[in-house]
Amino acid sequence: MTSNSKKVAILNTKAPFSQTAAKAALDVALIYGSFEQETSLFFQGDGVYQLIDKQQPDIIGTKDFLKTFSAFEFYDLEKIYVCQQSLIERNLPPEFHIEGVMVVSPEEFSLLLHQHNAVLTF
């Protein structure tokens, strides 16, 4: 059995509230971060809705877990990529509720994703 530390990608493709995917992805990301695993976060498709500004999930009885995204930097989760095309398709401005989000073209997004050894999709 080989033991090697992998570059992990967490790929978010779902909107935050009606499914458990976004919260599940967040929990996994923070765990990898706390184990100092090299981990990148990717947001594409409806996953980009997790990043947009001015959300108030408490109105619909959902705990504001998006607030926890601001902890990414303390867990050394500094590679946060969002697909530019997904934003454009949804008429979303590149305005996010956390700092340090990198807006990349779909080509770059794909290239970056390919550079990881383990990918989990949520």
Binding site: M1, S5, V8, I31, F35, Q37, N117, V119
Partner: peptide
């Protein structure tokens, strides 16, 4: 197990499949 177990599994195995 805790999610930490997932981190262990990720690094122990050659491949991780979901």
């Amino acid at each position: 197990s805790g999610l930490g177990e997932l981190v262990m599994l990720t690094n122990q195995a050659d491949r991780l499949v979901q």
